[in-house]
């Protein structure tokens, strides 16, 4: 098991280097059209002295590989540069936004787990029933829905229609993280539902197919032969096997949400990491953009590693190695 952990950690290093290389190349002079100094300062005109200063500080006149090395070493020390628009270190900006995205992602994951897993189990256990068909169809639909559109629809419905219909008694907040009218937790409902929608569909599908596969195995027959009830067979024997890939998916999905929530965050004006990066693109604040992306990638990689490790821990075949005589 320890060997497995070490091996995975080792594998991560070249990937991480690859990522930094890719990002570096994207902003490196020569590849990106335009003036590298402009990448740091934005569009405003600057004095010669300032230009010289910047060139010096960022080593822009150095050969590429030196610049890359500078980039990586800074990165490892936690220095992602400064946002020119705001004059603050990039790391600080994101440290601020990170908890917001975290809150959103957690809420979404909870929804995903509760609804997705139960839907998947029921669907598998009552195969071909109305419920099964319903789940299968609605998951296909949810997977095809553009997340941002769903968000807008929810806003229209819960924010406006409900307001009208219930004479302003029941409706939900549709933007931002907090407001005077609503408790903070109310604000997270619609965005979390939106963010969770597609993933819930996937979770239900995976859970269903894993359960079906598990229920078709020989050890299920053995369990019945021992006199176990249907409930015990389903929840004690089949579920434990079927859960493993689902747990893996949820874990990876959580990582993806951390960086991929940008659409939801934009629609609901949720001040998270993704939205920050997107706004920075609009402002051409490249240090923020690149810094944000690398932060997100690191988070995703760490989470993926944890997911891999949990898979190894859950699966006895990996945890306890091979055959003994």
């Amino acid at each position: 098991m320890l060997k497995y952990v070490l091996r995975r950690l080792l594998q991560m290093i070249p990937v991480f280097l690859g990522v930094t290389l890719l990002l570096f190349m994207l902003r490196a002079p020569g590849i990106l059209p335009g003036d590298p100094v402009r990448m740091i300062t934005g569009e405003r005109p600057i004095s010669e002295a300032l230009r010289a200063q910047i060139v010096e500080k960022h080593g822009l006149d150095q050969p590429l590989h030196t610049q890359y090395w500078m980039y990586v070493t800074n990165l490892v020390q936690g220095d992602l540069g400064e946002s020119y628009q705001r004059g603050r270190p990039v790391v600080d900006i994101f440290a601020e936004k990170f908890p917001n995205t975290l809150r959103l992602a957690l809420a979404a994951i909870i929804i995903e787990i509760l609804i997705g897993i139960s839907a998947g189990i029921i669907s598998a256990v009552r195969q071909y029933s109305f419920w099964d068909v319903f789940v299968t169809l609605s998951t296909s639909v949810l997977v095809s829905v553009p997340v941002f559109w769903l968000g807008m629809l929810l806003q229209i419905f819960f924010g406006i229609q409900m307001k009208e219909w219930t004479n302003e008694t029941f409706f939900l907040p549709i933007s931002g993280m907090s407001s005077a009218q609503f408790p903070d937790w109310a604000h997270v409902i619609l965005p979390a539902l939106t963010l969770a929608s597609v993933s819930t569909a996937y979770v239900a599908r995976i859970m269903r197919s894993q359960m079906l596969e598990a229920l078709g195995q020989d050890y299920i027959r053995t369990a019945y032969a021992k006199g176990l009830s249907r409930r015990a067979v389903t929840f004690r024997h089949a579920l434990k096997n079927a859960m493993i890939p689902v747990v893996t998916f949820v874990g990876i999905d959580f990582g993806a949400m951390m960086g991929g929530a940008i659409l939801t965050e934009t629609v609901f004006s949720w001040p998270g990491v993704g939205r920050e990066i997107f706004l920075a693109v609009g402002q051409r604040d490249w240090p923020v953009v690149m810094g944000g992306v690398i932060i997100v990638v690191i988070i995703v990689m760490v989470i993926n590693l944890l997911v891999d490790l949990s898979y190894a821990a859950l699966n006895p075949r990996i945890r306890y190695g091979g055959e003994a005589k």
Partner: peptide, 8 residues
């Protein structure tokens, strides 16, 4: 092999 539950 297949008649025994691999996770218990």
């Amino acid at each position: 092999m297949t008649s025994l539950n691999p996770v218990y």
